[in-house]
Nucleic acid binder design. Structure first.
Lengths: 194, 194
DNA sequence: GTGTCAACTTTACACCGTGTCAAGCAAAGG
DNA sequence: CCTTTGCTTGACACGGTGTAAAGTTGACAC
């Protein structure tokens, strides 16, 4: 069988993610992975030159499992107006909570290698891109009014707290972050039932 | 001088944070810290039995620097209504962005020790507590209407994305997370200018 | 002065996880 | 039968953490 190597590689990736998922708090050692996959530690290095390569490959492997390409495509070619929002929720709704779990597990791996961080940033960026595209599309549909409407103070607080995590999304949506927060503060004062 | 040891300890903590801040992407080694502080590596272990202890101590040290206690107190005993929001913004406004930078630097240290993770979780929790208290207080003041008002789709998307990060806050504010998202989706459909 | 104690120094080393090197082995396929 | 492929075992170098032991310096007590 010439596909033995491919099978082993697949098995390694599967096992790696299984271990990461099972221990989202502790770094998983190469020897642990080898043992769980039923192969020698050296065979691991035969397939992946370094631990960081294995981690990056596992991240890519998860893209397939989670059909990220399909989601990206789906959220791009969605209908208009309310249909767009439905499509967006359908495409990303269950993936967004999951990707946080994955990020946590990879974070715990403590790889100092930049490739691992980059690979993961790319994945988070894909989600942000998807969200930004959806918002933009809704805006173009006229489903959103261009000005910020009055908001409740809770909303403003939520946004102040979340804007840091999603600063890239803010930029992609064409909102200046600083100005955004300032506006939020101002609106908070205006809209409070004082 | 009997305060030599205290001075050295202070110097170590200061140096450690300086190095963390300077390299928020790379783990800082004990030898690096010792060198920067102008002492031997062993002196470090004399003050802090392990690297994780030093990291935890540095986190606590930052609490003092950032006057977290004062902020917590200030956001608790604030005025009512609009004054509360002002007090909240004054107390936490500049700290919240900063704490993300700190978290990043500590995250990069790749300490597998649970104490470090716990220490940092506690700090993030303190911020969440502060926010939750402010929101609750505003609610009690009657500054917020009890029902969710109509929202723009952007708001809902923001919240859907941020709710994961701040699930604890959701709980503390007495909101069920699942129900929150469901409500958000429903409101999104209702309020879209379709 | 002498002695003592505390803070720190230097040197050396054990441990652990990553990554490497070398030699061997079993099975598929010409 | 012989070669190639995909693995095996065993040994080891390296770097960073943490430990152990003996030596040095300076402040203060008597």
């Amino acid at each position: 069988m010439s596909s033995t190597k491919l099978n082993t590689r697949e098995k390694i990736l599967k096992t790696t993610w299984a271990l990461l998922e099972a221990n989202p708090d502790k770094p998983v050692r190469m020897s642990d992975i080898a043992k769980a996959a039923g192969i020698s530690r050296q065979a691991l290095y035969l397939h992946f030159p370094a631990r960081s390569d294995l981690l990056v490959a596992t991240a890519r492997y998860l893209d397939e499992v989670n059909q990220v390409d399909r989601r990206l495509a789906a959220s791009r070619k969605a209908a208009t107006g309310i249909g767009r929002l439905d499509a967006f929720i359908e495409a990303w709704g269950n993936y967004i909570p999951e990707i946080y779990g994955m990020a946590k597990a990879f974070w715990a791996q403590q790889s100092s290698d930049e490739a691992v961080a980059t690979a993961w940033n790319d994945r988070m960026q894909a989600v942000r891109h998807g969200c930004a595209a959806a918002i933009k599309a809704l805006k173009e549909d006229g489903a959103l009014t261009p000005e910020h409407p009055p908001k409740q103070a809770t909303d403003i607080l939520w946004m102040m707290l979340s804007v840091r995590n999603w600063e890239q999304l803010t930029v992609e949506c064409g909102w200046s972050q600083k100005r955004y927060i300032t506006t939020m503060k101002k609106l908070a004062r205006q809209t409070l039932v004082n």
